[in-house]
Simulated assay, not measured.
Amino acid sequence: MAYWLLKSEPQVYSIQDLEREGRALWDGVRNYQARNYLLRMQEGDLCFFYHSSTTPPGIAGLCRVVRTGLPDPTQFDPESPYFDPKATREKPRWYTVEVAFVEAWPLIPLEALRPCFPQDHPLVRRGNRLSVMPVPQEVAERLIARRGCR
């Protein structure tokens, strides 16, 4: 099993939204490196649900990958802000996964997460814009065991 961090602005889509819906596509990712991480995900992988662009940002819960390698449907929708005119159903450019809610946590703020992650990890490096990134196994296990890095 691998571990991932998925970022979302809570005013757009929050852990509470996922809890209410139960399952959701992680669509709208338009960064090639993040897309490649989505393509590496396997069913059963665990994802930390991170609330970004809020005060404070941080991990708000867990979800699990339940389906992989799905073409992102928003790339085909001209009404979507994620529409990609170069994508076709025969040759999609963007992929997604479906995730299922596992549990909500009291928010673990980014400042409390900084000492947990290697200094070069994209989450703690300044200027990082990736919405999907791997989490080292040892960090993930500590976070899950303690709901933080204490």
Rank of each mutant, 00 (worst) to 15 (best):
E111S: 11
I59Q: 00
G22L: 09
E111I: 07
E138A: 14
R20N: 12
W94M: 11
P122H: 08
L39S: 04
P73C: 08
T74D: 08
E79P: 06
S14P: 05
A104R: 15
E103Y: 12
V65W: 05
L38I: 05
P106R: 15
Y95A: 07
I15H: 06
W105I: 12
Q33H: 15
P78Y: 12
E79D: 15
R150D: 13
C116H: 08
R126A: 14
F76E: 07
E98A: 08
C116L: 06
Y13G: 01
W94D: 06
R67C: 06
C47R: 02
T68Q: 09
K7H: 11
V132D: 13
D27Y: 10
C116N: 05
T68A: 12
G22V: 04
F49M: 14
M1Q: 08
R30H: 14
R142M: 12
Q75A: 05
P56M: 01
Q137F: 01
P109V: 02
R114G: 01
E90D: 13
L143T: 11
A145Q: 15
G69Q: 15
V102T: 10
D77R: 09
I15A: 03
E138C: 01
P10I: 00
T74G: 02
L107M: 13
P109H: 05
Y37Q: 08
L46S: 01
S14W: 03
V65Y: 02
A60M: 03
D45W: 02
Y13V: 02
F83A: 04
L18P: 10
R89Q: 12
T55Y: 00
T88W: 13
P10D: 00
N31E: 13
E21D: 13
E43F: 00
Q33K: 15
Y82F: 15
L6K: 03
P78S: 13
Q33R: 15
Y50P: 10
T54K: 01
K91F: 04
S52E: 03
Q137P: 07
R125W: 00
V132C: 11
P136W: 08
F83N: 09
V66I: 15
L107C: 07
W26H: 02
V66G: 10
Y13T: 00
N31R: 11
E21G: 09
N31Q: 14
Y32F: 15
E141D: 11
A60E: 06
S131W: 05
E9A: 04
P71W: 11
P10N: 00
I108E: 05
R67P: 02
I15E: 02
E9Y: 04
G44H: 01
T96Y: 05
R147T: 11
V65K: 06
W26E: 12
Y13P: 10
D45V: 05
I144C: 12
P57I: 00
L6E: 03
V97L: 01
